[in-house]
Design a protein around this nucleic acid. Structure first.
Lengths: 110, 110
DNA sequence: AATTTTAATCGTAATATTGCAATGTATTAA
DNA sequence: TTAATACATTGCAATATTACGATTAAAATT
């Protein structure tokens, strides 16, 4: 189908996969790293930095914004983007809890 | 296009996005959580646990195995899967470093 | 007002992902 | 040897994602 059957998974599993999916493209990883480094920047700066066309960057920014990980501020004809710190921290908590799962004390099978 | 231009990103950015992509589907998150909880289990158990068809589970397992996050052990007609602990830890290091990026001391734009 | 600048949106082509029925393969059981 | 079991693989349909040219929208500049 190509359609994830979200209703058969827990809210937590769906949330983790939604966060992970947005990190599943190197352009979005690069955008986020640049925003962390530069702290805030205009959309046009990202177009120059990343090297994809402006509509493509705009589309990636839209996805990051839709998940709440960044916010955009209109300044004249430009839009200044930055990390949404509270939401980033909340996401981090969910993801790190998933990554930090520990095996039980039993041995593995292999 | 639908094609990520991996050559325009750093190895680190590509690696992060590859790991993230495999977590970008709730079925694979559920498989991993079950393996962590149960420690090791047969493919058939996962089919019952998750509720997707056997070929679908098999395909998700293949992707997890291809990235090295799980390993499979043939036992008779069954295959026992478990977390690949060393590789999981290595992945965790990369992902947590990404998630733990800190903003510079400057204020954000918004 | 006309032009320029910046970015969002639309439309569309190319490609990737997901899911599963059907089938293949290897091992065990009868 | 035949049948049963467990899983992988193949093939394909449905859907999602990615990229970008063309266009639109809004504000700033001339």
């Amino acid at each position: 189908m190509g359609l994830a059957k979200t209703e058969m998974f827990t809210d937590q599993q769906n949330e983790i996969s939604l966060f992970a999916k947005v990190f599943g493209h190197p352009a979005r990883v690069a955008i986020l790293q640049h925003l962390f480094k530069i702290n805030s920047c205009f959309c046009g700066d990202l177009v120059n930095e990343i090297g994809l066309a402006q509509p493509t960057i705009s589309q990636h920014l839209k996805e990051l914004k839709h998940l709440g990980l960044i916010k955009g501020n209109v300044e004249g004809t430009s839009v200044c983007y930055c990390i949404h710190q509270e939401n980033w921290t909340a996401m981090k908590t969910v993801m790190i809890e998933f990554l930090n799962q520990d095996l039980t004390e039993n041995q593995d099978c292999c």
